[in-house]
Simulated scan of single mutants.
Amino acid sequence: MASLLANDSEQIDRRTSRSICDAVGERLQQSLRPEPRLPTHLEQLLNELRQREREPH
C-alpha cells in the first residue's frame, strides 16, 4: 500500500487519512448493523400466521 501512495502525485496527511478511515468505518457499521429482532411473542404470532397461510383452504 505504501508503494501505491508513493507513486501518487497527490498525497494526504496522516490526520486526513485517519478521518477518512473513521468515516468509512462508521458508515460500514451503520449499514452492516444486524436487523433488530422482534419480541418473542410477535415472532410466534408471525410464525403462526405463516403456517396458516400455507394450509390449504
Rank of each mutant, 00 (worst) to 15 (best):
A23E: 03
L38K: 09
S17R: 06
A2K: 06
E48C: 03
R15E: 11
T40V: 08
P36W: 02
L5A: 07
Q29F: 01
A2T: 07
D8H: 06
E35K: 08
P39N: 14
H41C: 07
E26K: 15
Q30T: 08
D22E: 15
E10T: 08
P56H: 05
N47E: 13
N7A: 15
N47T: 11
T40P: 01
L5K: 10
G25R: 04
R33C: 05
R33Y: 01
A23L: 08
R54G: 01
H57T: 07
A6T: 09
E26S: 11
Q44A: 12
C21D: 12
E55I: 06
R52E: 03
R27M: 12
D8G: 03
M1R: 00
R18W: 04
L28A: 06
Q44E: 15
R52W: 04
V24L: 15
P56C: 00
Q44I: 03
I12D: 02
S17Y: 09
P34I: 00
A23H: 06
E53W: 04
N47V: 07
C21Q: 13
P36V: 10
L32Y: 10
H57Y: 09
A23V: 00
C21A: 15
S17W: 05
A23R: 11
P56V: 03
E26M: 09
T40M: 03
R27Y: 03
E53I: 02
Q11K: 15
R37D: 15
L49Y: 11
V24I: 15
D8M: 14
L4G: 05
E10A: 05
D22N: 14
R33K: 14
S19W: 07
N7H: 11
L45V: 13
I12S: 01
R14N: 08
E43Y: 02
L38N: 13
Q30C: 05
R27N: 09
P39C: 05
L5H: 07
E26C: 02
R52Q: 11
L5D: 08
N7Y: 05
L5C: 04
Q44F: 01
P56D: 03
R54P: 00
E48F: 02
P34M: 09
D8E: 14
S31W: 03
R27D: 03
E55S: 13
L46S: 11
L28C: 07
Q51S: 14
N7M: 10
L4A: 10
T16D: 10
L32H: 12
R50V: 10
L5Y: 06
M1L: 11
P34Y: 06
E26F: 04
R33W: 01
Q30N: 08
G25E: 14
P56A: 02
P36Q: 11
A6V: 09
R18D: 10
N47Y: 06
Q11T: 12
R54Q: 15
R15G: 00
E35S: 07
E43H: 07
D13A: 05
R50P: 00
E53V: 01
Q30G: 01
Q51Y: 05
G25S: 14
N7C: 05
R50Q: 13
R18F: 06
I20P: 00
L4I: 10
Q11I: 12
I20D: 00
E48Y: 02
